[in-house]
């Protein structure tokens, strides 16, 4: 199982530049990012729009070319890690195939890598139970609520049992009640599966509530301005949000942003 002291993802001097269409130069999306993410930890990438948090996630996922620097996932490059299907990705929208049932949506990654049918059925049952959708396997996406669709997205990301779960603002489109329920459920899934989770969000409370570490990113250029360790006890419940400790951490995170609140 996961060794809490081992580094899973190591990032050194990462820079990502985008070509600037207006004046021909480059826009620095990420500048000199250094980061170490421990195996089995829950880490949030927090920041306002334009701070490069999604770019950072996409760079780790090998969905984005980097300009310079090194990303190492247990000694492997992001590309090697992607090709060995060690990333499970959850997007902001559920990105489900509307012509497939819930079960077949979750099956899709397993079909792609060619798992035998019995194995697929077994895994689908397993992850459906994990996200609490056992009753809904035969439904089509349009027959589910937004929160349930996002659960299917999480189940699909877990289908291949990847090392790392990359989540790009997965709850930002949901209403407050659904969001809280999914946060609690995500923590319980994380505790059961021992995945390393990278969670992009622009919500300070959400990042403090979920994470072991909150990586605070500031914009123009996108850079890491602080890494705040969240020492709150586990397992956490919603009541923890009303404690003074929680409020202090939220305020500490808020004050770590550079050049935003001046």
């Amino acid at each position: 199982m996961a060794n809490a002291n081992e580094t899973e993802i190591n990032i050194k001097g990462l820079c990502v530049n985008f070509p600037d269409k207006d004046n021909g130069g480059d826009i620095q999306a990420l500048k000199d990012v250094n980061l170490a993410i421990k195996e089995g930890s829950f880490v949030s990438l927090l920041g306002p729009s334009g701070c490069g948090k999604t770019t950072l996630l996409r760079s780790i996922a090998d969905l984005q070319d980097i300009s310079s620097g090194i990303i190492s996932v247990k000694g492997k490059t992001p590309k090697e890690t992607r090709l060995s299907q060690q990333y499970g990705i959850v997007f902001q929208s559920p990105v489900l195939y509307e012509w497939r049932t819930v079960r077949r949506n979750i099956c899709m990654p397993m079909e792609v890598i060619g798992l035998p049918k019995e194995e697929r059925t077994r895994r689908v049952d397993e992850v459906l139970e994990l996200v609490g959708l056992t009753e809904f396997g035969r439904k089509y996406p349009h027959q589910l609520s937004g929160g349930m669709q996002q659960r299917v997205g999480i189940a699909r990301a877990l289908a291949l049992d990847p090392e790392i779960l990359l989540m790009d603002e997965p709850f930002s489109a949901l209403d407050e009640f659904t969001k809280e329920k999914l946060q609690i459920d995500l923590l319980s899934i994380w505790q059961k599966t021992k995945k390393t989770i990278l969670f992009v969000t622009h919500n300070i409370q959400e990042s403090v509530f979920l994470s072991d570490d909150v990586v605070v990113l500031s914009p123009h250029p996108g850079r890491v301005s602080a890494v705040v360790n969240i020492g709150l006890k586990r397992p956490r419940d919603l009541a923890i949000r009303e404690t003074a400790e929680f409020a202090a951490l939220v305020s500490k995170v808020r004050h770590s942003f550079e050049g935003i609140y001046e």
């Binding site: 090998d62 969905l63 997007f91 792609v112 291949l160």
Partner: peptide, 25 residues
């Protein structure tokens, strides 16, 4: 949508899979 391509890419899906499981449907 771009995310559906990203998903296929993250699974290291072959072109055949991208066409038969995503584009044609």
């Amino acid at each position: 949508e771009k995310e559906k391509y990203d998903l296929m890419r993250s699974l290291a899906a072959s072109n055949w899979n991208i066409y038969t499981k995503l584009l044609i449907p």
